[in-house]
Each structure stands twice: as C-alpha cells, then as structure tokens.
Amino acid sequence: MARLAKLTIEEIRDEVLSLIAFDQPDLNIIELSDDKVEISGRLFVMPKSPENQPLGALDQFEVRIVIPIGFPAIEPLVFETGGRIERELDYHVNPNGSCCYSVWPAWLADAKDQSISEVVSGPIMDFFRWQYVRLNGIDAATAIGERQHYISGLLDAYAEVLDCSPTQKSVSSHLKVLRRKWLRSRWRCPCGSRKKIGVCCETNLRKIKGRVSPEIAEIMQEKLNSQSR
C-alpha cells in the first residue's frame, strides 16, 4: 500500500510549476517559503462535458491557493479573491473567502494521484464548476449535490469511502480497523454484525484497505475528532 508522499518545499514548487506550465497558465507563484508555496491569479474552470469543450473555459475566478509543507496529508487552502462568490456558508465560502471545496481525507482516499495538478483539476475545479453552475441561475446544491454542513457531511463522505452507514459509530468502527497495519480475520467485523471479519466483510474490507491506508485512516479519524468537538 503506497504511503502518502512527503514532499519537500522544492518538490511542491516543482509540482506547482507543472500546473501553471499549461493547465493553469494565469496562476503565478507569489510566495515561496520554508513552510508553504502560495499561488494566485486567474483559475480557468474547464468543462467536463465533451459537448462544451469546443467553448474553452466555462469561467474564470480570481483565487489564492496556499499549499503547505505537509501536503498532501495537509490540504491546500483556497481563497476566492475576486468577490464573485458571496461569503455565505450556504455557498461553502467562509467570511474570509476561504473555500470549503471538499472533504479532504475522503478525496485522499479516492484519488489515484495525489499531485497538485490532480487537486486543482479535481476537487478545486469541481468546487468552482459548482459555483459557475450556481452563478448561471441553476440550483447547484440540488442539481450537482453538496455535503451537509459539519459532521453530518463529513460522515456522509466517509461512509461513501468506507462503504458503511453514515453514523459516527459505524464510521469510527471502520476507521479503527483500517488504522491498523494488518487486517485480521479473527477481529470482530466493524459492520456491527457481531461476526468475525473472516466470515463477514473481509473481501470488501480488504478492497477498502487497498485505498485507505493506515495513514489516511488516521487523517480521517483526526478530522472526525475535530468535527466532533
């Protein structure tokens, strides 16, 4: 099972340079220090629909993105700086402009490639595509979907990754098993059946463990703890 990369600040900078070389040509590095790389400029929102691709970018937003040392275990902070999105919780933007673009640990578990280019073309682009749809008069929350605020949205996202019910008890039981290095067939199954894993969900759990390493399970648990407080 692949461990999360431990990138140096130079490696983070190189990934950012790859991003702005072609995919996002109007973003620029504005600060490079020992603990972060900060970029800002225009973020182009590209279409997902092949039918829309001849149109080029759907929209563009002024943004500032802070990638901390510790990425990808620690998520990048994204700020919408152009003032086009109302600073409202319902639009997933905090009063300081920071954007709640995804449940980070859930993305970490699902992503095939945890590079900066993938984060920007994945959840960050998805967030701004959601805003673009909304700004064009469509109820994005209904049409595309959104997570409920706080712990219930977090549990929903985790439940999808862990293939379990979105309750704190079920999610915690699964994370407890997944935080261990090995999966033992004799352990009690986290699904709540009171059976041993070996005669219950072993196949499915091993599949999930292939994506959710102990390290990611730990990050998921920490986020759950912070939301539970």
């Binding site: 997902k48 709640c100 995804s102 595509r129 959601w130 997570r147 605020h149 996202a157 986020k223």
Partner: peptide, 13 residues
C-alpha cells in the same frame, strides 16, 4: 455530471 458523476461535492467543516 448527473449522468457520469465524478464531481466532488463542496462541504462546510
């Protein structure tokens, strides 16, 4: 997106 999925959903934590 509705047909093919794959758009991650925003959240408020």
């Amino acid at each position: 997106i509705t047909e093919h999925g794959g758009n991650s959903k925003p959240w408020q934590g």
